[in-house]
């Protein structure tokens, strides 16, 4: 007998959206729907839910709040935001608080939504099974994050690198690269836990590189610091780059510190349980790295790919 269907919970204050989604997913999963954020959280508390797909703007509770609660009660549940309008604050919160898997905008493309939810459901079922097989122990035991961890800071100014150095314990190696080539070389030669990148332009190589990087090194977590209030850029970084944190420049010290600590811990966790890596799967970038890529940069990419191949082999 085949495994029971995964359970997917849809949250939206518009009944017609829920009706439409029920129809779309009929036969593909066990469908739960609610117009109330609170009820959604209740549901996740009471029973296993593999995927939660939530609207953002709802009376009472926002989607990000719902997803944050869901993550707290059931970390293995995959979280997707499906929303009609992406204001920057909501998108930033969805990364930093909701740690969402995908940010999907309405109106959605039916096939893409089906594929994304099914993919998320596969990952979640795997994780649920894993958690069941290793009760309590792995989740509770603190992971020693500092051991041999290496952090790369891509920062053309250097101030960010200095701040990161100051915030981390001495056992963590902080490497500073002023440009993308330098960063890629670091990544090719070492196992880098976290990349902190200062992003100064939306259409530059850096955003593209972060997306490519996630495909080659899913265990490497990215923290982006930027003054760009560009929700589209950030949605791209979520869906195609699974960016771990997005901090608006100047990044408050405490936020940066907490982001770094969380990233190092998550990385250590991912290294011990490589099965979890699927959670960090990304969509194919909408476009290939820009054509202006220099020879040196191409060289760095090639080395990084080879290193990734070796690792897999």
């Amino acid at each position: 007998m085949s495994a029971p269907l995964p359970s997917v919970l849809f949250v939206d204050d518009e009944e017609r959206i829920l009706r439409s989604l029920r129809m779309l997913f009929r036969g593909r999963c066990e469908i739960l729907t609610t117009t109330s954020g609170r009820e959604a959280v209740e549901w996740v508390r009471r029973r296993p839910v593999h995927v939660v797909v939530s609207d953002q703007r709802m009376p009472g509770m926002t989607g990000v709040e719902v997803l944050r609660e869901v993550a707290a009660h059931s970390p293995a549940t995959m979280r997707i935001l499906l929303t009609g309008y992406a204001d920057m604050d909501a998108v930033t919160a969805s990364v930093n608080d909701g740690e969402i898997y995908r940010f999907i905008e309405k109106p959605w493309v039916a096939q893409y939504l089906v594929d994304t939810v099914e993919q998320a459901a596969r990952v979640a079922r795997h994780d649920f099974a894993l958690a069941a097989a290793r009760p309590a122990a792995s989740a509770a035991s603190p992971v020693d994050t500092a051991v041999a961890a290496r952090v790369a800071v891509l920062d053309d100014e250097g101030a960010l690198a200095a701040q990161v150095r100051e915030l981390l314990p001495a056992a963590v190696r902080v490497e500073h690269a002023p440009d993308l080539e330098g960063t890629l070389e670091l990544l090719a030669d070492h196992d880098v836990a976290v990349v902190i990148a200062r992003l100064s332009s939306a259409d530059g190589d850096v955003a593209d590189a972060l997306k490519q990087l996630k495909r080659l090194r899913p265990a490497t977590l990215a923290i982006v610091v930027s003054s760009l209030r560009d929700s589209r850029l950030l949605i791209g970084l979520i869906n195609e780059g699974q960016v771990f944190r997005f901090l608006l420049q100047p990044a408050p010290r405490e936020l940066l510190r907490r982001g770094l600590a969380a990233a190092l811990e998550r990385h250590a966790h991912l290294r011990t349980q490589s099965d979890l890596l699927q959670r960090h799967a990304v969509d194919a970038p909408r476009h290939e790295p820009v054509a202006t890529t220099t020879g040196r940069l191409l060289q760095a990419w090639r080395r990084l790919r080879e290193a990734a191949m070796l690792r897999i082999a």
């Binding site: 017609r16 009706r19 439409s20 989604l21 609207d55 009609g84 309405k106 109106p107 039916a110």
Partner: peptide
């Protein structure tokens, strides 16, 4: 976008 969402779907 909300009605557009279910209309399209």
């Amino acid at each position: 976008n909300t009605p557009l969402g279910y209309v399209r779907n």
